[in-house]
């Protein structure tokens, strides 16, 4: 069976890298003594994968991990065992089991919900910018793409993020939005802030952006959001 879990990356450990996070999960699986499967071959590795990579510094309520077990363990029991084996900054929220042939979790995510909190004061300027963003048909942005030849890539922010909700209080701007994930990729939440700064002349301090992924979900044929795990929430 495949065990699927929704887990968190809390504020306290937001700066550990994706690789470190994955390695921590593997060690926790060993401590929990779950009967996890390994690949064949000279250098066997644990059959465990994360649904989508999270940027360093991003907090998450919605990390999804999938692992293949050699023998079935009731998901609730597996979750309980893992809870004891994980560091305080990783919590298990829900657990589910599917059979071995179910499509990889990695491939089914259709979008993510983010919250970005960032210092800001000029309410008028911000509400104008957010209004313009929501009304715009497209917003071209050149993002960094270190793996490509050019090193940059032209994207349309509005394709990924159709709508923004914004609130300003206590000197902080709180942005909430859904961001589309396609088989070809997605965009980083921080690039939304970069795009807003560029397009609307805002001077939001990107380096202080406090970013949190609130959810990750599937999108059905009608465009409705469905939870990643059956029976969740």
């Amino acid at each position: 069976m495949k065990l699927r879990l929704q887990i968190t990356k809390d504020r306290s450990i937001r700066f550990i890298s994706h690789l470190e996070y994955a390695r921590t999960l593997m060690r926790a699986v060993l401590r929990a003594k779950l009967p996890v499967a390994y690949s064949e071959g000279f250098n066997p590795h644990m059959k465990l994968s994360l649904a989508s990579a999270l940027g360093v510094g991003v907090v998450s309520q919605a990390e999804f991990v999938e692992m293949e077990l050699k023998e079935p363990v009731p998901p609730a029991e597996a979750a309980q065992r893992l809870r004891k084996a994980l560091p305080a900054g990783i919590k298990v929220l829900t657990a589910d089991a599917v059979d071995d042939h179910a499509p990889a979790l990695m491939s089914v995510a259709g979008g993510a919900t983010y919250q970005v909190v960032i210092p800001a004061t000029d309410a008028d300027q911000i509400s104008q910018a957010v209004g313009a963003f929501n009304a715009a048909a497209s917003l071209p942005f050149t993002k960094k793409a270190p793996k490509t030849k050019a090193g940059v890539k032209e994207i349309d922010v509005k394709f990924y993020i159709p709508h923004l909700e914004a609130e300003l209080f206590g000197g902080k701007l709180v942005l909430r939005f859904d961001c589309r994930i396609t088989p070809a990729g997605s965009m980083k939440a921080v690039d939304l802030v970069n795009a807003l700064n560029k397009q609307y002349g805002l001077a939001l301090p990107v380096e202080l952006a406090d970013i949190e992924r609130l959810d990750l979900y599937r999108v059905d044929d009608l465009g409705r959001h469905e939870p990643m795990l059956a029976g969740a929430r």
């Binding site: 306290s12 700066f15 301090p205």
Partner: peptide, 20 residues
């Protein structure tokens, strides 16, 4: 250590603790 400090340095996990 603010977010921008930890984002700017090499290996930020050196400074944040919380290990198992």
């Amino acid at each position: 250590f603010t977010i921008d400090m930890l984002s700017a340095v090499e290996k930020p996990a050196r400074y944040t603790g919380g290990e198992f």
